[in-house]
């Protein structure tokens, strides 16, 4: 039984080494052309990793410009959508009867294909600005906002209403009013739920930013570049943007997990 701490350490090492080894095998298969045989494709459509990295290096200025454009849309939409979603949740929690009905509607927004949503929003924001770049950005931010709003409002509502047993009674015995109850009980109780929502909406904000770029008037952004480059058969460049998009997704998720660990540290 003295093997226990050792086996724990071995476990941790395994969890890191095994996936990395698998990843190495995958990249090797890709680089040596084995993957191409498996997928029945050629190195033109699926370029070698080294080639993609070279392209990223060569075009770093242009890529960064598009990355910032996409990040701006994703982050602004995420922030607006989350704030809006939280406010809706507060409203729904304050007026439960009317509110829960509105949440049913908003959560069904989640099921609306973003492909249908994007052109509509782009239509509606045509008059916002005479400049195509500005009005496209506004349209894209609005799309991301709508998509992020749904998951935040549903989760935050749960956080504001699913309270520990008797905690509301406790507040009542103190003679706390609704505002105090909100500040001292509901708001802190909802914090972990906010992170649950963000774990969903952070990846979703990026995906919807990229997809909304497909439909936008002004040609910019990582998602749009993937598509444009494929249209002109520049597959290596398209792959460079795909890799960059994956890196953005992973980086934002890691940041979120770090923030969550920091904020919720005391609760564990």
């Amino acid at each position: 039984m003295s093997a226990r701490p050792n086996s724990k350490r071995r476990n941790a090492v395994q969890s890191a080494v095994l996936p990395l080894a698998f990843g190495a095998v995958l990249v090797t298969a890709w680089q040596t052309g084995l993957l191409h045989k498996l997928l029945n494709t050629d190195e033109y459509v699926l370029p070698y990793p080294t080639r993609i990295l070279t392209i990223i290096g060569e075009n770093s200025d242009k890529i960064m410009e598009n990355v910032w454009a996409s990040l701006e849309v994703a982050l602004l939409g995420l922030v607006f959508g989350s704030i809006l979603g939280y406010l809706i949740a507060v409203f729904a929690a304050a007026f439960t009867k009317i509110g829960s009905g509105s949440l049913t509607i908003i959560s069904s927004f989640n099921a609306i294909p973003i492909v249908a949503l994007a052109p509509v929003i782009i239509n509606w924001t045509k008059d916002v600005s005479p400049e195509a770049e500005v009005r496209s950005t506004v349209a894209k931010v609005v799309i991301v906002t709508i998509v992020c709003m749904a998951s935040m409002s549903v989760n935050a509502y749960r956080g504001l209403t699913e309270l520990p047993a008797f905690s509301q009674d406790l507040m009542k015995t103190y003679g706390a009013g609704r505002i105090t109850e909100f500040a001292k009980l509901r708001l802190p109780n909802s914090v972990p739920y906010i992170f649950t929502a963000l774990r969903v909406s952070v990846p979703v904000s990026i995906i919807s930013a990229l997809v909304s770029e497909y439909f936008a008037e002004y040609v910019i952004g990582v998602g749009r570049q993937i598509r444009e480059n494929i249209l002109i058969a520049q597959y290596s460049t398209a792959w460079a943007y795909i890799i960059v998009a994956c890196v953005i997704g992973i980086a934002m998720y890691v940041l979120l997990i770090a923030a969550e660990a920091l904020v919720l540290k005391k609760r564990r």
């Binding site: 699926l46 995906i207 990229l210 993937i226 398209a238 792959w239 795909i242 994956c246 997704g249 992973i250």
Partner: peptide, 14 residues
């Protein structure tokens, strides 16, 4: 985490 929908064009190409 990664935007699969963003990869749609390349999957179409493959």
């Amino acid at each position: 985490i990664i935007p699969i929908l963003g990869m749609a064009p390349i999957i179409n190409a493959i």
